[in-house]
């Protein structure tokens, strides 16, 4: 369980998160939606201890993120950031292999190699395994980073806009894989999405954020109503139900 309690955060006095309290039980796929600048990435980065907490507390399976040794946390939680940063001269396989570091400390065993192969295969990177990351397309690189996070084998997987750069086929495939991962065991995925319909189709729960607050929290059907969406994004969208799923027509003229 991820427990976030009374977390506020400010950049140079400008509030970014305002007293956020929410808890995410183990298991399930939670989508974080909301307009640009809502504080989604900031919230995830605090959970993943990439920035120091300013107030409030966050615990993962009872371990306070600001006081637990990094090695320990790295075996139960990982994050893929929105901007994945510089990569230098790495091959896809080397990058994905870094996911095993918390377990093997760099001396990879046969089991590590099995995990790496499985991740490569799951994200359709087998043919690209020996390629340098700097030779890949944006979407291919994005998949390599998700594969690395997946390869870490943590109970909690935080993904900040993993669908960036992905074509419809790979976008759908990524969501199906994440769904599989969640359904297959006790793993928990928290994912920032901008395409509301992916959230509607794959998420168990949606957290909607705006101005550093959680505006709505519930199942897709509960959160994705025209009124809530208007409060969130500032314009009216039509919501249709089709074959038991909510569809948001957000791109109309």
């Amino acid at each position: 369980m991820i427990e976030i309690e009374g977390v506020s955060f400010a950049h140079r006095g400008t509030p970014v998160l305002r007293d956020v309290t929410v808890s995410l039980p183990k298991g399930g796929l939670t989508a974080l939606i909301g307009p640009n600048g809502a504080g989604k990435s900031t919230l995830l980065s605090l959970v993943a201890r990439l920035q120091p907490l300013q107030s409030g507390r966050i615990a993962v399976d009872g371990m306070p993120v600001d006081r637990t040794p990094g090695r320990l946390l790295a075996r139960s939680l990982t994050i893929m950031r929105q901007d994945t940063g510089p990569v230098g001269r790495l091959t896809v396989r080397e990058l994905v292999g870094f996911g095993r570091f918390p377990h093997s400390r760099g001396r990879q065993t046969a089991e590590d190699h099995r995990h790496i192969d499985a991740s490569l295969e799951r994200f359709d990177l087998g043919d690209l395994a020996a390629r340098g990351l700097d030779t890949l397309s944006g979407g291919q690189r994005q998949r390599a980073f998700v594969a690395m996070a997946f390869c870490q084998g943590t109970d909690y997987l935080l993904l900040d806009e993993p669908l960036n750069n992905l074509d419809p086929m790979y976008g759908r495939q990524m969501m199906r894989h994440l769904r599989d991962v969640v359904d297959g065991g006790q793993r928990t995925v928290v994912i920032v999405l901008h395409d509301i319909n992916y959230a509607a189709a794959y998420a168990d729960r949606i957290l909607a954020m705006k101005d550093g607050r959680i505006l709505a929290d519930g199942t897709p059907a509960e959160v994705l109503t025209p009124d809530r969406l208007e409060a969130l994004f500032g314009y009216r969208m039509e919501v249709r139900e089709f074959e038991g799923r909510v569809h948001v027509l957000h791109h109309g003229p």
Binding site: G70, F101, Q152
Partner: peptide
């Protein structure tokens, strides 16, 4: 040497791989 490899990914990736 292995830690250094991880550190070359940058602070965020390194932290999430368990480096303080």
């Amino acid at each position: 040497r292995h830690r250094l490899d991880v550190m070359s990914l940058g602070p965020d990736a390194a932290v999430s791989l368990g480096i303080d």
